[in-house]
Amino acid sequence: MGSIKLEVVTPQRRILTEDVEGVTAPGAEGYLGVLPRHAPLITFLKPGVVYYRKAGNKTERMAVSGGFMEAGPSKVIILADMAELSSEIDVEKARQAIKRAEEYLRERPKGFDLAWAEEELNKNTARLKAAAVD
């Protein structure tokens, strides 16, 4: 079954470099799975959860938002604005951020920024989903 190298980097740092059996990521046109020997592909990522499985281990999760993924036969590179491993996610903080964003969407104060609020909402929903709590 071979393996594929998964690299996740954000502007601040390298999050992960690992040999995995497969990756599933939230692409621009829906979730897509990448297995070893995948055809070269470049896609945007929507805020969501990336699933990956190390050989013989159970599937792990990671929250990502804003970025793109380049997949090749032996390598998957994810460039994201935000990427957090499920173990690193601060659930309480994400919950509060969602609450704030929802309030913001309801109140629509002066200088209302819809794109920002939606991004905030999606990003933190992805965080919660990756941390596997709801």
């Binding site: 692409g27 621009a28 046109e29 055809a39 070269p40 470049i42 896609t43 945007f44 793109f68």
Partner: peptide, 24 residues
């Protein structure tokens, strides 16, 4: 030239990547 599959089409991908490239 490697033939890439683009999702969505290349020009859209590039359009989104260029501002990011500039920020970087």
């Amino acid at each position: 030239e490697i033939d890439y599959i683009y999702e969505p089409e290349p020009i859209k991908v590039l359009e989104a990547i260029l501002p990011r490239y500039c920020e970087t």
